[in-house]
């Protein structure tokens, strides 16, 4: 199948004010991501992985250069347009799951669909499908506090996947999980990537994740030092 580019990053620079000076988190990044990729951005702490993910996710804006996601330059978007982009095309998975604590599993997964104003019937079907993919149908009425870390992350994946987004951005998704849970989660994401052709971009320095990647981009001090496609 021919792959098309859904993310293009051109000469991206991101600086943060630190005291009276500035810290350059990303320095001249040029990357292209195609549909259906399973990519890991790896590197030590402070190398700029999360910053790059935030810019791709239109949660942050570049200081210079461009990040074009689904044909839209995130730096030029209004807050409303950026929200629309995230709502329609992007799914997020966080290291600390970020589930809404007062909602049940069902309600957490349903949340992105409420924002998309889907009908209740469509929502129900999509939520149950997503929970079935992740094997969480028996925990529908549980609240996050009643779940284990692995289960929470599975709910977070279901929430990210329920609207079948084009891109899933996962920031250290296995950092809080043990080895068994990490492998399970990664296998599930890989399966979803292969079945739904969703592009997965990870920020990670976890070796367990790296084993599953089809492409590994290594960042150091805000620069791409290696970009390799892994054939298995």
């Amino acid at each position: 199948m021919e792959q098309s580019s859904i993310i293009t990053i051109q000469e991206l620079i991101k600086r943060f004010p630190v005291g009276k000076g500035e810290f350059t988190a990303l320095n001249g990044i040029n990357l292209t991501f195609n549909t259906g990729e399973f990519v890991g951005i790896v590197g030590p702490s402070g190398s700029g992985k999360t910053t790059l993910l935030n810019i791709i996710g239109s949660l942050d804006t570049p200081s210079e250069g461009k990040a074009i996601v689904m044909g839209q330059s995130t730096g030029d978007l209004t807050t409303k347009s950026a929200a629309k982009l995230r709502k329609k095309y992007l799914g997020f998975i966080f290291q600390t799951y970020n589930l809404l604590p007062v909602y049940t599993v069902y309600e957490n997964v349903e949340f992105p669909l409420l924002l998309l104003k889907m009908s209740s019937g469509e929502r129900r079907k999509a939520v149950l499908d997503a929970l079935e993919w992740l094997g969480m149908t028996d925990k529908i009425k549980s609240r996050p506090a009643q779940l284990s870390g692995g289960e929470c992350q599975r709910v977070a994946i279901a929430r990210a996947m329920v609207k079948k987004p084009e891109i899933v951005l996962a920031d250290e998704p296995t950092a809080n999980l043990d080895a068994a849970n990490s492998h399970n989660i990664l296998k599930m994401m890989l399966k979803l990537n292969e079945e739904l052709k969703t592009t997965f971009i990870f920020a990670t320095h976890d070796d367990k994740v790296i084993k599953y990647l089809k492409r590994k981009i290594t960042l150091e001090d805000g620069k791409v030092v290696q970009d390799e496609f892994i054939t298995k």
Binding site: A83, R86, K87, L100, L116
Partner: peptide, 16 residues
């Protein structure tokens, strides 16, 4: 705060 950040990440505007 994290919940607010999550709402925004999932596509809510700050106004919403």
């Amino acid at each position: 705060q994290k919940e607010i950040g999550t709402y925004i990440a999932m596509g809510m505007t700050r106004g919403q």
